[in-house]
């Protein structure tokens, strides 16, 4: 028997596999396909204070080994999520939920997190700091260690739930941002968000995505994410959720060896709606093959020596 359970800042997950925010909505579409209770957790769609319509079409482009998206944080807003989605989630999933929270000001982040304080099923807040700061000329919170720390402090003051800051890879040194979040009181980190990229249509000579740029995800980003998890693991002492291009149980194990305590699966869900189910089902065999009996002990296992 392999023990697949892992712990994230005191929250126990029965396995480390978590569908990543933005690829799983609020669970509805996948609940039609399989029992979500097999999941360790799931990270819901990035939710902001107000409803957001998102970016113009087209929002999606393809590339070798992955895809680009510029959905633009389309979501119904925190109040609607509390009234319509939270009760429905309780019907389709009884495990711990990770609430992904966005914001365009420090105050908005704190307020959104405060509103989730009484939602018992939300056990972890995942704060997406890849949003533009409207009070700082649109500069991305996650690209500035001071702004990242400010958001962390404000959110920590607003909640008693564990706070995981979700980091953008679009920075010179992700360990600097990671340390700033840890110093500001973050309970954990989630990395990486998508990498900024673009495609141009050869016939029209225009960017494929209406927003011009989009976030790159899929298997092609896996080595980049892995390297960043590795670097951040060496730089901080708080747990890391590894995210980026994970498509198989082997990828999940590799991500844990690099330093992840749990693993998010994103774009793979869009290609194969059963991706997380398949990963969870194959994980025990992969562990057995590798002589692993307690999966949580793998975290950071490649760093010794």
């Amino acid at each position: 028997m392999v023990n697949l359970a892992v712990s994230l800042a005191g929250v126990t997950l029965k396995n480390p596999i978590i569908p990543a925010s933005g690829t799983f909505g609020y669970g509805r579409e996948y609940a039609e396909l399989y029992d979500l209770n097999i999941l360790g957790s799931f990270s819901w769609k990035g939710t902001t204070g107000q409803a957001r319509l998102g970016n113009p079409q087209p929002r999606i482009a393809e590339m070798t080994g992955g895809m680009l998206n510029a959905v633009g944080l389309q979501n119904p807003g925190i109040d609607k999520v509390l009234s319509d989605e939270v009760p429905h989630i309780a019907e389709i999933f009884q495990g711990p939920v990770i609430a992904n929270v966005g914001g365009f000001s420090v105050e908005e982040y704190a307020e959104n997190c405060r509103k989730l304080e009484d939602v018992k099923q939300v056990r972890i807040l995942e704060v997406n700091i890849s949003c533009p700061n409207v009070h700082a000329g649109g500069k991305n919170f996650g690209c500035d260690p001071k702004a990242a720390a400010e958001v962390t402090k404000a959110v920590k003051a607003a909640t008693n739930k564990p706070v995981f800051m979700k980091l953008t890879p679009n920075v010179t040194d992700i360990t600097e941002i990671a340390r700033a979040c840890e110093d500001a009181g973050a309970d954990g980190l989630c990395l990486i968000n998508t990498l900024l990229g673009m495609r141009i249509d050869l016939k029209s000579r225009r960017p494929v995505i209406a927003n011009r740029t989009g976030g790159v995800s899929g298997p092609a980003v896996f080595p980049v994410a892995l390297r960043m998890v590795w670097d951040v693991y060496e730089a901080v002492n708080i747990p890391i959720i590894g995210c980026g291009g994970v498509s198989t149980a082997e990828d999940a194990v590799e991500m844990m060896l690099a330093g992840a305590a749990a693993v998010e699966v994103g774009a793979a869900n869009l290609k194969d709606p059963y991706a997380c189910k398949t990963i969870i089902e194959t994980l025990p065999d992969v562990c057995q093959r590798l002589g692993v009996t307690n999966l949580s002990q793998l975290t950071g296992g490649a760093h010794h020596g």
Partner: peptide, 21 residues
């Protein structure tokens, strides 16, 4: 539309309508 998932999860193909997106 250009789609991501094709089954409603990613919001990649959302368009405005009179009844919302």
């Amino acid at each position: 539309a250009r789609m991501g998932c094709g089954f409603g999860a990613c919001m990649g193909c959302s368009v405005p309508t009179k009844g919302g997106y």
